[in-house]
Each structure stands twice: as structure tokens, then as C-alpha cells.
Amino acid sequence: MNRRDALVWGATAVFALLAGGLGWWIGLRVHAPERPPPPGLVVVEPGQPLSPLTLAGLHDGQPRELAGPGRPRLLNYWASWCGPCRDELPALDAFARSQAPNGVEVVGIALEDAADARAFAARLDLGFLLLQEAPGPRDSSVRFGNARGLLPFSVLVDADGRLVKTHYGAFADAAEVAGWAAPVTSSD
């Protein structure tokens, strides 16, 4: 075997080990065990109304109320350091832009420092509302069912303000988002 072939085989082996290690780590995260909520924290179950939630707009800092009746909503928790979150944002944006004025409202909630989220979001042309919340054991993602502490995490809310279902992980495309949100989309 010549030197070039040895380098190719060596690089292939290193890549395979790295890919295997990354796959193992992702598998641990996706299948992370659910953790009990902190004492006194009430977790909303499917069919129950969302607890009151007011978060600051990512760009303007203005408070936005998200609980209660109104349009159906898809709340998506993300962070700029989260690769699957970054990959998923275009699918959420395409879905959001496909919705009629009374359709599903997509709301992105950055679970990180506002300055970091703002800097990342400035590079994107997202057509949906972006909010920010400090991450922690009592953040709204945990109250709405994120018992694994994973991102991205999505919450589907009906027009009456009741939790319909949750989703761990990234959506691949707008069609997958639409299929997942189908229980709250209007047929008229």
C-alpha cells in the first residue's frame, strides 16, 4: 500500500469513528430519559389549557401573551447553538408562510441569551414571531412537556388555547410540519 492509500484509509477510519461517536451521542440525547419536573411545577397535559405565558419579543423586547384562545399555534423551542434547530427553521418558515391569516401561527422561542439569538436570527429572513426565554428547569418548554430537556421541541396548541401534542426533534420539511399540525388546521 502506498502512502496516499494509507492516508485515505486512515482518514476514512477516523471519519467512521467520529461519525459513530456522533451517532451514539445523538442517540443518547434523542432517547434521553424523561426527568421529573421540579417540585411545585405543574406540567400541562394534552387537552389542558396552557398556563399563562408572556415572553419578550426577540427583536423589540415587547411582551407577548401566548396562552388563551385565538389562532392555533405551533410553539417551537430552539437555540442558535443547536444544529437540528438551525436545520429545521427553514421548514418552519415555509409552513408559517403557507398559513392563511387564521391558520396556524408559528412562534419560535429561543431558549438562550437574547443577544446570541438575535445575532443568529439577524442572518435569517424568518416570517414568524420570534420570542426569547431564559433556559432553565422551570422554563415554559418544561411546563409544556419537555421532560427530556431537548431542542428542538415543539408544542401544538388549538384555537381554544389547549395543548394538543408535543414533538421532540427537528421537522425535515414543511410537509412534515403540516402533517404534524393537521389536528388544528381548518378545513374551510
Rank of each mutant, 00 (worst) to 15 (best):
M1L: 13
R3E: 14
R3L: 14
D5I: 10
L7F: 13
L7A: 14
V8A: 14
V8Y: 02
W9P: 00
G10P: 11
G10M: 14
G10R: 13
T12G: 15
T12P: 01
V14S: 03
V14I: 15
F15A: 15
F15Y: 07
L17Y: 02
A19M: 11
G21R: 05
G27K: 01
R29V: 15
V30F: 00
A32I: 00
P33N: 10
P37K: 03
P37Q: 04
P37W: 05
P38F: 00
V42Q: 10
V43M: 07
V43G: 08
V43H: 06
E45K: 15
E45G: 07
G47S: 09
G47I: 06
G47K: 06
Q48H: 04
L50P: 08
S51A: 15
T54V: 15
T54H: 00
L55G: 02
L55S: 02
A56M: 08
A56C: 02
L58G: 01
H59P: 00
G61S: 08
P63Y: 06
P63C: 11
L66T: 03
P69M: 04
P72E: 01
R73M: 13
L75E: 02
N76G: 03
Y77R: 10
W78K: 08
W78Y: 05
C82Q: 02
C82T: 03
C82P: 04
G83H: 00
G83Q: 06
G83T: 13
P84K: 06
C85R: 04
L89C: 03
L89K: 05
L89W: 07
P90M: 10
A91D: 01
A96Y: 03
R97E: 07
R97V: 05
R97I: 09
R97L: 14
A100C: 01
P101A: 09
P101V: 06
N102W: 00
G103C: 10
G103N: 09
G103V: 08
G103T: 07
E105Y: 01
E105T: 01
E105V: 00
V106G: 12
V107Q: 11
G108C: 10
I109Q: 06
I109Y: 04
L111W: 06
E112Y: 03
A114H: 03
A115K: 09
A121S: 14
A122T: 12
D125A: 15
L126K: 04
F128N: 13
L129Q: 15
L129C: 09
L130C: 10
L130W: 06
E133Y: 11
E133M: 12
E133S: 10
A134K: 14
P135T: 13
R138V: 15
D139S: 13
D139F: 08
R143M: 11
R143P: 14
F144C: 04
F144R: 03
N146L: 05
A147P: 04
A147Y: 00
R148M: 07
R148P: 04
L151K: 02
P152G: 08
S154W: 07
V155C: 08
V155I: 09
D158Q: 09
D160S: 14
G161P: 10
G161W: 02
R162Q: 04
V164H: 03
V164F: 02
T166Y: 01
T166N: 08
H167Q: 14
A170V: 04
F171C: 09
A172H: 11
A174L: 12
A174E: 10
A175N: 13
V177I: 11
G179D: 12
A181M: 12
A181I: 14
A181P: 05
A182F: 12
S187Q: 13
D188C: 00
